[in-house]
């Protein structure tokens, strides 16, 4: 966002973090309002400083806009529509893969996620994508489930595997 263009500073997308920060700080202060000072003091300190910093930031931005040294744009957040689409799909696929873990288990959801990404983002052929994603998901299963015994919800694959090999 500091990419000065013709000496001007773009602003807009960089309000997101201060707004989130101010919102969280407000919530935090409410959540501790009934507590003893020892439980409160550091949170209050951080929140107050944060408000102060955000205040300065807001003031600077407003002054900048009034003086014409700042201009509003949101593009820097996503750069281009193509990139936004790619990132959006990657993040959406990630969210989807996490959402199905409780039903599909680690191995299947990882396979599905990698397969979709490889086909969609890299443009791999379905066959190659299936082989690569399958190998990676299976390696993950061996390493994380069999060896490291992480307690992921079991899916059809894990149950089938454990029924077959008795592990």
């Amino acid at each position: 966002m500091n990419d000065d263009r013709n000496g001007k500073v773009a602003t807009g997308a960089d309000w997101i973090i201060p707004i989130l920060g101010a919102g969280f700080a407000t919530y935090y202060l409410i959540s501790i309002k009934d507590l003893d000072w020892e439980a409160k003091v550091s949170g209050v300190f951080c929140a107050v400083v944060l408000f102060l910093l955000i205040g300065i930031f807001a003031l600077r931005t407003v002054l900048g806009l009034l003086r014409g040294t700042h201009y509003i744009e949101l593009r820097s957040l996503y750069e281009s529509h193509k990139l936004a689409l790619i990132r959006g799909s990657l993040f959406a696929l990630t969210v989807a893969s996490v959402a199905i873990i409780p039903w599909a288990g680690f191995t299947l959801s990882t396979f599905g996620f990698l397969f979709a990404c490889f086909v969609w983002l890299q443009g791999m052929s379905a066959r190659n994508a299936a082989i690569t994603a399958g190998a990676l998901a299976f390696a993950g299963y061996v390493l994380f489930i069999l060896i490291l015994r992480t307690s992921f919800p079991q899916g059809p694959f894990e149950r089938l595997a454990s029924a077959l090999i008795g592990l």
Binding site: P102, W103, P153, P156, R159, L160, A163, L164, G166
Partner: peptide, 23 residues
């Protein structure tokens, strides 16, 4: 909610797995 559903499914699939498992 998620956990409850998961257990329902878990139970269903568990029955399937049990049928595959050694006696």
């Amino acid at each position: 909610n998620m956990f409850n559903r998961r257990h329902v499914l878990f139970a269903g699939a568990g029955a399937l797995a049990a049928s595959l498992a050694p006696a």
